[in-house]
Design a protein around this nucleic acid. Structure first.
Lengths: 245, 245
DNA sequence: GCGGGTTATTGACCCGTATCAATTTGTGCA
DNA sequence: TGCACAAATTGATACGGGTCAATAACCCGC
């Protein structure tokens, strides 16, 4: 869970190494590191880690010692309800960070589990804190990322409080595609590793309802979808669905 | 909106003054300031501010220059949807902070509006940042508060994704009472300034449904409620309602 | 490539909550 | 003190999505 090879003092060079290894655009780009420099340093990276489907990055109760960057694959985060059911609260895609709450609490509050064969990069909180000290932009950027997560959660509130089943599914697909686009991945045609069951759970619906929403979108020729393969045929129609309440 | 009377350098004494004036338990207590010391300094405080019902602490788009502490009264935070509807995303009670996103973004993302005659204390972000520099515990505590907001949002996700109308209302009342208890306010009998309409909006329900939920709770002798007056008659029954399902 | 088990889809029916409409209860202001 | 408007409540009905049950598609290991 922790690789104790971090140098006593981290300087910009070390930061670059971490960034390049983790596709850490989210943290590094806004801190003003240039892309080529990062790419050039790709081999120096430590702390990369393969992770298998169903394997957990961490469980609720674990010490929160790292923030993670998704390099490849995808993850779901969920809480355990008192009755043993799970509630999925987020999905993490390549180029994104997860486990940010580690910056603020000793113990993990949620579970985060790989949805497919994935690869992550662990950033020890201690190192990050030392970095923030030297490069204030890093600390500010982490704050900003937490704030963005909060704003995301408000959008989800909106979705869960107001939107029809069809709109929820349409929004999920749309946002998923947007997020892929943002990190330079294919966004018209891609895999969604999350199961219908998990998706339903996340969106506050039943599997059957999600299934019917997919069929509706297929019937309307907005998407094609079979299991995890998904293609957006008509982005405008998809957006239209979302705007209209 | 901003009172420019902060000294160049803030030391512990200044912090105490800010805290005492704002009932800033959330920020100050975990930073290790003792309660009596704070109370004794109550008169020194600047930056307090009365605010009328319907008046806004800030609007989306405003520069985010302060974090606020509720000293008296209550507030609702909401987003504006594209269609002009609002989505209430949170309620703020005495002793709590709001507008924490100011620590991370230039512009406000949400609106925050007084639900009743209230009094707040504004904490300029600049001052807070200077403070964090001198007293690291403050910075950490702010991080922690943001993380807690995130965790709250996960609980709301759970509620919106799974719970029946009755359970949602019961949970709202229960949590509201808990929060009052935490800051030493009456929690068996109190006012909820939020209207049924706003409550419905927040909980993802219709007004009529909220009304019926209240009637149900009244019929079961769990609470008494008329408009904003609320009394919890049977806390155990209320908790039971929440646990089941 | 063939089972066996899991995941997704489809259909029929039902229930909880939305919606529409009508009162009732408050509340703030003259 | 009472009037007028807003907020809350209550009732009747409709509908979206939940639930239950059966089938189909897919995937994985052998």
């Amino acid at each position: 869970m922790s690789t104790a090879v971090s140098p006593k003092i981290l300087e910009l060079g070390a930061l670059r190494r971490i960034c390049s290894g983790c596709s850490l655009r989210e943290l590094c780009l806004p801190a003003g590191l240039d892309n080529d420099a990062i790419a050039a340093l790709d081999e120096f990276v430590q702390k990369r880690q393969d992770i298998q489907p169903q394997e957990m990055a961490y469980r609720a109760g674990d010490p929160a010692s790292n923030v993670y960057a998704v390099r490849l694959g995808s993850f779901k985060s969920y809480r355990m309800r008192k009755n043993g059911d799970i509630q999925i609260i987020g999905v993490h895609l390549p180029g994104e960070l997860f486990g940010l709450d580690a910056l603020a609490s000793e113990q993990r509050q949620v579970y985060t589990e790989a949805l497919e064969k994935s690869n992550i990069c662990a950033l020890p909180v201690g190192d990050l804190e030392r970095l923030s000290h030297q490069i204030p932009a890093i600390g500010r950027q982490m704050m900003r990322l937490m704030a963005r997560e909060l704003n995301n959660s408000y959008e989800e509130h909106e979705l869960l409080a107001n939107d029809s089943a069809l709109t929820r599914v349409a929004k999920f697909i749309w946002r998923y595609a947007q997020r892929r686009q943002q990190v330079g991945l294919q966004y018209r045609q891609f895999d969604i590793a999350i199961s219908r069951q998990d998706l339903a759970n996340y969106l506050g619906l039943q599997v059957e309802t999600v299934s019917r929403a997919f069929r509706e979108l297929r019937d309307r020729k907005v998407i094609t979808a079979s299991r995890s393969k998904l293609e957006i045929l008509d982005p405008d129609a998809l957006q239209a669905l979302i705007r209209k309440e």
